[in-house]
Computed example of a mutant assay.
Amino acid sequence: MINIVYRLKSPKFFEESIDEVELDGVIVRPTHLSICQADQRYYQGSRPANILDEKLPMALIHEAIGEVVFDSEGNFKSGDMVVMIPNTPFGEDVYSPNYSYSSKFRGSGFDGFTSDLVNLPEDRVVKIPDDFNLNVSAFIELISVAYQGISKFTQMAITPKDNLGVWGDGNLGFITALLLKELFPKSKVLVFGKHQENLNLFSFADEIYRIHDVDDDVVVDHAFECVGSSASQSAIDQIIDIINPQGTINLFGVSEYPVPINTRMVLEKGLTIQGNSRSDRVDFVGVVETLKQNPQLFEHLEKLITNICEINSLGDLKDAFDKDYISKFGKTILKWNI
Rank of each mutant, 00 (worst) to 15 (best):
I211G: 01
A223W: 01
Q238T: 12
E256V: 02
Y209L: 07
N198A: 05
L190A: 12
N198P: 01
I175H: 03
V191Y: 01
V227H: 05
R264F: 07
V220A: 15
L201P: 01
Q238A: 11
D215Y: 08
W167I: 03
I175D: 07
L190V: 08
D206S: 06
H212W: 02
Q238Y: 09
V166C: 09
S203C: 09
V191P: 02
Q233N: 14
K269I: 02
S229T: 14
R264H: 14
L179F: 12
W167G: 01
L172M: 13
Q233M: 14
P260F: 05
Q246C: 14
A235M: 07
D217H: 12
G253H: 03
D215F: 04
R210D: 11
G270Y: 01
E268I: 02
F184E: 12
G170K: 05
F174H: 09
I249S: 05
I239F: 09
Y257Q: 15
G253Y: 00
G228R: 00
E225N: 06
I261A: 02
G247Y: 09
V214A: 06
Y257G: 06
E225T: 00
Y257P: 01
F252C: 05
V227Y: 04
L251E: 10
V166A: 10
I273R: 01
E225Q: 08
L179D: 12
N276V: 04
I261W: 00
L199Q: 07
K269S: 06
S229A: 15
G193D: 04
A205N: 09
S234F: 08
V191N: 01
G275D: 05
D216H: 11
L172C: 04
H222V: 13
V220D: 13
T176C: 06
H195M: 07
I175R: 02
V220G: 03
S187V: 08
S229C: 11
T176P: 00
G247N: 12
D237L: 06
V191M: 05
N250M: 15
V166N: 07
S230Y: 12
M265V: 07
F224M: 10
E207V: 03
I236N: 01
S232N: 07
D169N: 02
V189L: 14
P185W: 11
D216Y: 09
D169P: 01
V189A: 11
H212N: 15
